[in-house]
Design a protein around this nucleic acid. Structure first.
Length: 907
RNA sequence: GGAACGUUAGCUCAGUUGGUUCAGAGCAUUACUUUGACAGAGUAGGGGUCACUGGUUCGAGCCCAGUACGUUCCACCA
């Protein structure tokens, strides 16, 4: 059969992926084999494949495919995350384009749209993973809002609440004014922002207890007989209406006379106390700080400490409310401009300075985050961290690279409570129920909640009966209402490693018992806290066991300028287009070859080229080997020996590499293992082995050699298969007709390599290279033949390789000599001399130069070795084997020097 | 402000317990080959004071201290 000139990747990819699916190779059922379980980090349902996914999933696929070929029961579970905020944003956007406002819809109607949207677009990313060749068990596809999963999330909430680990509390949170939802600290991105620092006058009240000067008159002059003021610096003049104190450092001499006095907030003239706290930095701004407990995290803490009034001046969309008194309804940043102008006009503004500071932005909507007081649901994290810290520190769960252990420890030791409520409809609705009077109960159903609330009601009322007969009015089941909010997305995905096997909804079922704990988690370091840490906690809390044995953190994919790949920068290539153009194998190769373990990778699309070239190289090797098939012959036993050595060598070389690869995989040095295989195929197999066994033009080939060669080729592509599944499966089937498939072919056992053969091959390669180099330098054409004379004490070694040598350096003959051969090119390799007899006129200067260069190096080397050996302290302190090796270096160098000197004399 | 990590060839990176046949690989580059699997190739070569300064040691790319630069994370001064 004639093979096409090139590999047709798109045809092969489709064909083989479908074939693997038809054969159910990726489907796993519990059996008596050792399991190898990986759960995919569930991409957002809204997601489309990007380079990060490409890296992450290629790595997982490599691990899973290798495990499968090692005889393990490999199970890779796919699925998606409902991604509450991101998905809701997309649905809202989609509705807006249709002219429908979310506010005009009931919760039920909105959710109907959302599900519709999810069904339509939600699976795109999973389809894209198929294009990459990912060997996922599609029958196990999970979704964080599947009915069972949903119920598990709710039950976990109830359970944690009942254990006292979840509470409801008013806390300062990061508020996204666009999405109108609370954000966790981790969802806030801090960016350096150019700002203005406004220096404002706060006029002083005359007497600390003077009530005659209450606000009411708008003119400062009417409030103050003098113009004494304290100046403060702020970047947020629009929040002054929320000020309830001014704070100075107790030791600040400038303000000691003001301790306990009062000042007036400009424009609204609220009278506020001047308090002292060491929190204030004396040398920043004016050393006096305006305290706005409702709108600043630190001010809030100060406010609590000093019992200050809290005046919240913002609506949930970031506009000013009535409490602000002025500019009601204006957006916060509009208000800032207007207030700044008014302050200036009325003489409150002393000056402004340019100022750069970090401002928090919402990761989801990119608006400036507003610190806001709000009633939210919280997880008391200290109560559930349990064994999660020690599991990682004691390496019961191993982190690769281990540097992330420190980061993890730091976070765990300083863990803060987790705000889990989100003001969204898309997600798991919080199972809390309220009476019209604000009593609440946590329960799975309304009926249960009603029962609990009735109980609470009677207790409360019986306690308060002495004072008031009904502290809370009576209510019916129809009066109670469920919490409107949903749970944070991560509150569902932290159950992922066991709930994909129904490990919570159906505890101790056969599957979860078999597959859990999972083996390897492959994820991005960015979500070590969001997800990894919380999965570990949930694992111990609900399974009493770690969720995975090891975590491999991939690097961040950056472009060649070192910038993170992102949509907004537009430096993220269209992955699917790339796969279509260059082939999935090339793309997988490209991302893996540039991916050092655990470090960020500078990815350049050019690295796909290397993958494409590699595919082409293997394709051509296939064509070469196949062209021999029809020319095989049985050879007499005393036939040529060159192939015997080549085969011996390659067998041992394969063993050697297998051992190497094992070590690399154990440390997740996947990029290196790909390089190892790449070089094994390109250099060892194509450049050396195939050249050594290649028959002359249109000559026959020994049948045994042919079969061995096909066998080697199979073993090579088997090693490569996890990295580049399509081209390897294709070659496997084109090498010869067969019924089995490479995807499930089991690796042979690892055998030790014979070092003698390996070192003979190294010698052989070195001799070939050196002679070729000498030919080059003496301007011999490739077609010019030579007669090779070898001067060696080790004839036996050379006899096994002399025929290869002859072929590889285009020699007519090889013979052994004990004397220098006149008029020849001389080279020295190790302890042996090679004389190349040629008819071409020789220029001996370059030879001489080379030999002299070698001589100088060797003499220098010898001196340094001798120096060392003559150093008494070295001989005393160094290990015996080190001294022994130094002695050997010395004698070797001495012999070589003699050989080279002789050669120089003969020139 | 605190911390972690990094600095090795033009670029991206390996260098495991200190031992001058360890200064490496892949790209890129140069010369020569339009040879019969492959020019998407072959053969061979050039290229580095291992960031800097000290120290420990018989011996340092590797260990220690400091400096500079870079990246990231955490906390943040209004």
């Amino acid at each position: 059969m004639e093979l096409p000139k090139n590999f047709d990747h798109s045809n092969a990819e489709q064909r083989w992926y479908q074939h693997w699916l038809d054969k159910k190779y990726f489907h796993s059922e519990p059996d008596d084999r050792e399991p190898y379980t990986v759960v995919i980090p569930p991409p957002n349902v809204t997601g489309v494949l990007h380079m990060g996914h490409c890296l992450n999933n290629t790595i997982q696929d490599i691990l899973v495919r290798r495990a499968r070929m090692q005889g393990k029961n490999a199970c890779w579970v796919p699925g998606t995350d409902h991604a509450s905020i991101a998905t809701e944003a997309k649905v809202v956007h989609m509705l807006r384009e249709k002219g429908i406002a979310k506010s005009s819809l009931s919760r039920e109607a909105f959710l109907e749209y959302a599900w519709e949207w999810k069904e339509k677009y939600g699976g795109i990313i999973l389809q894209q993973l198929k294009k990459m060749g990912c060997s996922l068990d599609w029958e196990r596809t999970s979704f964080t809002m599947d009915p069972d999963y949903y119920q598990s999330v709710i039950n976990v909430f109830i359970d944690l609440y009942n254990k006292g680990h979840i509470y409801r509390g008013k806390r300062m949170i990061n508020w996204d004014v666009k999405a109108k939802t609370a954000l966790s600290d981790e969802e806030v991105i801090r960016k350096e922002t150019q700002q203005k620092l406004y220096f404002l006058k706060y006029y002083l009240s005359l007497e600390p207890g003077d009530r005659s000067q209450e606000p009411g008159n708008s003119s400062p002059d009417s409030l103050h007989t003098t113009h004494d003021y304290i100046s403060i610096a702020t970047v947020r003049p629009e929040t002054i209406m929320g000020d309830t104190a001014i704070c100075v450092h107790p030791d600040d001499e400038r303000y000691k006379h003001l301790h306990g006095k009062f000042a007036f907030v400009p424009l609204i003239n609220r009278r506020i106390p001047i308090i002292t706290d060491e929190y204030v930095t004396m040398d920043f701004g004016t050393g006096a700080l305006k305290v706005t407990p409702a709108h600043d995290m630190n001010d809030n803490q100060l406010g609590q400490k000093h019992n200050l009034e809290v005046v919240d001046i913002f609506n949930e969309d970031g506009t000013l409310n009535e409490a602000a008194q002025i500019y009601i309804g204006e957006d916060r940043f509009e208000a800032r401009k207007k207030i700044a102008k008014e302050l200036e006009e009325k003489g409150y503004l002393l000056k402004t300075e340019d100022y750069t500071s970090e401002v928090g932005y919402s990761e989801r909507t990119d608006v400036v985050v507003e610190p806001r007081l709000s009633l939210q649901w919280w997880v008391d994290m200290k109560k559930i961290t349990g064994p999660a810290l020690s599991a990682v520190m004691d390496e019961e769960i191993k982190f690769y690279p281990s540097k992330f252990k420190n980061l993890y420890r730091h976070w765990m030791e300083n863990i803060k409570d987790w705000c889990i409520s989100r003001q969204l409809w898309w997600g798991h609705r919080i199972p809390a129920w309220y009476t019209p009077d604000g009593l609440f109960a946590v329960a799975a159903t309304k009926e249960e909640a009603f029962e609990k609330l009735t109980g609470q009601w009677s207790i409360v009322n019986s306690q308060s009966q002495t004072e008031k007969p009904f502290l809370h009015s009576p209510f019916t089941i129809d009066d109670i209402k469920q919490d409107e909010d949903c749970l944070d997305t991560w509150f569902s995905s932290w159950l992922w490693p066991f709930e994909v096997f129904n490990g919570y909804s159906n505890p101790n079922n056969k599957e979860v018992n078999y597959y859990y704990p999972t083996n390897t988690l492959v994820t991005a370091p960015e979500i070590i806290f969001f997800w990894v840490a919380r999965m570990i906690m949930a694992g111990y809390e609900y399974k009493g066991q770690k969720p995975f044995n090891e975590v491999y953190f991939t690097g961040i994919v950056r472009d060649k300028q070192g910038r993170k790949m992102s949509k907004s920068l537009g430096n993220s290539p269209d992955l699917l287009q790339m796969i279509e153009d260059e082939g999935a194998d090339a793309v997988r190769f490209g991302i893996m070859i540039s991916s050092p373990a655990g470090n960020d990778l500078m990815w350049d699309q050019a690295s796909n080229e290397q993958g494409k070239f590699f595919v082409n190289k293997m394709w051509n090797a296939l064509k070469l080997v196949r062209s021999w098939e029809s020319r095989t012959t049985e050879r007499p036993k005393d036939g040529k020996t060159e192939c015997i050595f080549a085969i011996d060598w390659f067998e041992n070389r394969l063993s050697e590499v297998r051992i190497e690869l094992d070590a690399q995989f154990n440390d997740f040095r996947l990029s290196e293992s790909l390089k190892t295989i790449y070089s094994l195929i390109w250099d060892d197999f194509c450049s050396w082995y195939l050249e050594w066994v290649k028959p002359g033009f249109e000559q026959p080939i020994d049948k045994t050699v042919y079969e061995k060669t096909v066998g080697f080729f199979e073993e090579l592509i088997q090693l490569l298969h996890p990295f580049m599944p399509f081209i390897t499966e294709e070659i496997y089937h084109l090498l010869k007709d067969r019924n089995d498939d490479l995807t499930v072919k089991q690796y042979p056992a690892i055998t030790p390599a014979d070092n003698t053969i390996l070192s003979t091959a190294i010698l052989l390669k070195e001799v070939i290279t050196t002679i070729r180099d000498a030919r080059n330098k003496n301007q011999l054409k490739p077609k010019d033949t030579i007669k090779l004379h070898i001067m060696t004490e080790n004839k036996t070694t050379y006899s096994s390789i002399e025929s290869i040598l002859l072929k590889q350096v285009n020699a007519l003959s090889v013979s052994y000599t004990s004397m220098a051969v006149a008029n020849s090119i001389t080279v020295v390799v190790q302890k042996d001399k090679f004389f190349m007899e040629t008819t071409t006129v020789l220029d001996i200067t370059s030879q001489k130069e080379q030999l002299q260069k070698d001589l100088v190096y060797l003499e220098g080397f010898l001196i340094s070795v001798e120096k060392k050996l003559n150093n008494e302290r070295f001989v005393q302190n160094a290990k015996p084997e080190v001294i022994e090796s130094e002695r050997k270096k010395k004698t070797d160098a001495e012999i070589k020097i003699i050989v080279i000197k002789e050669s120089l004399l003969n020139l």
